[in-house]
């Protein structure tokens, strides 16, 4: 870890004028700083800002302060009742210790990463733009099948952000000039293209202050499923968030987002398009899943993620539609 200057911000104003790198839970940033992968010169501590509450928003949604911890968010009774997919996604991720530390804003902004990003002896276009990607022809079991490029095939490992994207969450930010803006959760992250070191659209010094969850249609059913290498405390090989609204056996709204498969939390628009207006039916679900994975590309070790994602999407939809039991024993 290289030396840095530490400042503790007392207000949002202080924070955005105090520096261009923020630290909240630090569960990803400190990890990367120890490896010398992140080398901030100045860190602004935003954990003491008054951004740690969850409040009712106009129109029936919730406004979540960016410093609400992952566990506080998962535990919140309103989240459990109205956005169960978010609570389940949060609780599917990491461990209680990490969730107690990690913040809502920080969870979004954890780095897209892979083994070769961590191994500073290997080539990585994210760490050293233009150096090359050792994952492409390397061991790439955990890597992306959607949205990747020849410059980077790492995945965004968040569970929370997958649910947020499915819920059409919006981020509120404050820039150093005092201006604010709203960024859709889905639009926060950028695909790697030829600049994989640019992972999101926020400017240096732009702070996420809140996340807005819009209200959902009545009767929406929520499912979060996560396939992984061990029963707990493992990143998703593939995860699926589903919010499904039906009228009889007609699907009136279907939202599907995927984790573990792309350099960003992946909104499955093709699957959604195939579902919209369709009937509740296993074949419909399977075809929707297949549509989403149509352009998926494996890199050898991660080829299995294509059928895995297909099956998991179809199964999660079936669960949301009540065709399958949601036992997660």
């Amino acid at each position: 870890m290289r030396p840095f200057e530490y400042v503790r911000a007392a207000t949002v104003e202080d924070a955005v004028t105090g520096g261009d790198r923020f630290i909240a839970g630090g569960t990803n940033l400190v990890d990367l700083m120890k490896h010398g992968i992140e080398r901030p010169e100045r860190l602004v501590d935003v954990t003491r800002l008054e951004l740690a509450s969850i409040e009712e928003a106009d129109g029936g949604g919730l406004r979540i302060g960016s410093q609400v911890t992952n566990s506080a968010l998962a535990n919140d009774a309103r989240v459990r009742e109205r956005y169960p997919v978010l609570s389940k996604a949060l609780l599917s991720g990491a461990t209680q210790q990490l969730r107690n530390k990690a913040s809502t804003g920080g969870n979004f902004l954890q780095r897209t990463r892979c083994y070769y990003f961590y191994d500073t002896a290997r080539r990585c276009n994210k760490r050293e733009p233009g150096s090359g990607c050792d994952a492409l022809d390397g061991f790439n079991r955990i890597h992306a099948i959607l949205g990747a490029s020849e410059h980077c095939i790492a995945t965004h490992p968040s569970d929370m952000a997958v649910a947020m994207v499915a819920l059409d969450a919006e981020l509120l930010t404050r820039k150093s000039d005092g201006s604010t803006r709203r960024v859709k959760a889905e639009a926060l992250h950028q695909l790697p293209g030829d600049t994989p070191h640019h992972e999101h659209v926020l400017e240096p010094g732009e702070l996420i202050t809140h996340v807005d969850l819009p209200p959902l249609p009545d009767g929406a059913r929520h499912v979060y499923r996560k396939a992984r290498d061990r029963a707990s405390y493992a990143f998703a090989l593939v995860s699926v968030a589903v919010v499904l609204v039906t009228d009889g056996d007609a699907i009136t709204e279907a939202r599907v987002a995927l984790g573990g498969v792309a350099p960003k939390p992946w909104r499955a628009h093709r699957a959604e398009a195939a579902l919209k207006g369709a009937r509740v039916d296993r074949d419909v679900f399977r075809r929707a899943a297949e549509a989403e994975l149509e352009d998926a590309r494996g890199h050898g070790d991660n080829d299995f993620k294509i059928p895995l994602a297909t099956r998991l999407i179809a199964s999660a939809l079936a669960e949301a539609a009540g065709l399958d039991a949601g036992d997660d024993r």
Binding site: Y115, Y116, Y118, D119, A121, R122, D134, D137, G138, F139, R141, I142, D229, R230, A231, S232, Y233, A234, F235
Partner: peptide
């Protein structure tokens, strides 16, 4: 423990990706 045949590096040399059984396993 995976081995990258090009360099001999172990790509997953940490406890995030070398999976010991956890309590729930």
């Amino acid at each position: 423990l995976h081995v990258d045949p090009r360099s001999g590096a172990f790509p997953n040399r940490d406890f995030a990706e070398y999976h010991l059984a956890v309590q729930r396993d």
